[in-house]
């Protein structure tokens, strides 16, 4: 199959919805295929790549940070970018500027960038397909 360009619009905030688990599963498959991936992260999803996320311990279960091994979405985003690059693809991950300003999450992991809804329009125009995963 030829390399495709797929766009995903994500809306859910980190650590709240199974939608993001499914979204990252889909993104990982597209990355493993070396596809060109565009992501427009808006509303709560604009915090997915927020660089200041830190894993936490679980004192209730008596686990320290290493034992808890808590995943962060910023690491998942970074892993996605690395996976795409390893497979000859690329990811253009855009964090909605208005959304990050509202939330104070305008420090991103490297390889992602600030953008606007105009980027989603451009992504849509340039893509073979688009999947919008809205929040409930």
């Amino acid at each position: 199959m030829s390399k495709k360009t797929l766009t995903f619009a994500l809306m859910d905030a980190p650590y709240e919805s199974e939608n993001l688990t499914t979204a990252f599963r889909l993104l990982a498959i597209a990355a493993e295929r070396g596809f060109t991936i565009n992501v427009f992260a808006y509303e709560g999803a604009s915090a997915l790549a927020f660089a200041k996320q830190v894993p936490h311990p679980n004192p209730v279960h008596g686990k320290n940070v290493a034992e808890e091994n808590h995943p962060t979405t910023k690491d998942q985003v970074a892993a996605l970018l690395a996976c795409a690059e390893e497979n000859g693809g690329k990811v253009d991950w855009v964090n909605c500027g208005m959304c990050v300003d509202e939330r104070g999450v305008n420090e991103f992991v490297p390889g992602t960038r600030r953008g606007s809804p105009a980027d989603l329009h451009a992504f849509t125009e340039a893509s073979d397909n688009v999947l919008v995963i809205p929040t409930k």
Partner: peptide
């Protein structure tokens, strides 16, 4: 497998979540 979603998208099928 969830791969089927990417298969459909890559084929250009109209997709709605």
């Amino acid at each position: 497998k969830i791969d089927v979603v990417i298969d459909h998208m890559a084929e250009g099928h109209k997709t709605l979540w």
